[in-house]
């Protein structure tokens, strides 16, 4: 199986390293021919507006949307979570998403960078031990459809917000496991999402 990491902008090299530590040689992809050749895709952290604009400019946007809709296993972290959402509550002007999970996300939901944080998270089905969640200007899931599985949530001011979700073959986390050296989420994606 060829796993691609979308390399338009963001921390794609950290995802590539995480795949390597799981024993998988990933491939950085940024052209339509490269995207056509992969069997699974990781959309990294970064600036979601920049990634979607570049994808549009270089003819990747509709291709990636279609491949995700056709069942390509896909994992998005942070900006990647925004990009696999069906819609954004507070998009930048003209900002669109690839889609893949029937959910609406709120960008920068926890606040600006001065509010960025780390916390231990327990994720259903993914981790034995808690995972260190690194949240950097992260989104959360505001609304979701009945087909979406909530793998992990975070409570803010008494209200629960999903931060790790899966629908079919699309996985998304609001946090960045690629920055921690803990590859449980990547292993879950490779073993339980890609191989099912």
């Amino acid at each position: 199986m060829k796993v691609g990491v979308l390399a338009l902008q963001g921390d794609f090299r950290e995802h590539l390293s995480a795949l390597g530590e799981c024993g998988v040689t990933g491939k950085l992809v940024k052209t339509s021919s490269e995207v056509s050749e992969i069997d699974a895709l990781i959309i990294p952290g970064g600036e979601s507006t920049t990634i979607s604009k570049l994808a549009k400019s270089f003819g990747l946007f509709d291709l990636i949307s279609k491949r995700i809709a056709d069942g390509m296993p896909t994992y998005g972290s942070c900006a990647g979570m925004i990009l696999v959402a069906k819609s954004i509550l507070d998009p930048a002007s003209g900002q669109e998403t690839f889609g893949g999970i029937d959910m609406q996300v709120r960008r920068n939901a926890f606040g600006r960078q001065t509010e960025s944080f780390e916390v231990d998270l327990e994720l259903t089905g993914i981790s034995g031990a808690p995972i260190r969640g690194v949240f950097i200007r992260s989104p959360w899931v505001e609304n979701y459809g009945s087909g979406v599985d909530i793998l992990g949530s975070l409570e803010v001011d008494g209200k629960s917000h999903p931060v790790a979700v899966q629908e079919g073959r699309v996985l998304a986390t609001a946090f960045h496991p690629e920055l921690t050296g803990d590859n449980q989420v990547h292993r879950y994606f490779l073993e339980e999402v890609c191989n099912k």
Partner: peptide
């Protein structure tokens, strides 16, 4: 997990923010 159990403003989120700007 609750957001009040968090560590805010550590080196990892500061350096990590820059990682998200790469490229």
């Amino acid at each position: 997990s609750k957001a009040n159990e968090t560590e805010v403003g550590g080196a990892r989120v500061k350096r990590g923010m820059a990682e998200m700007l790469k490229g």
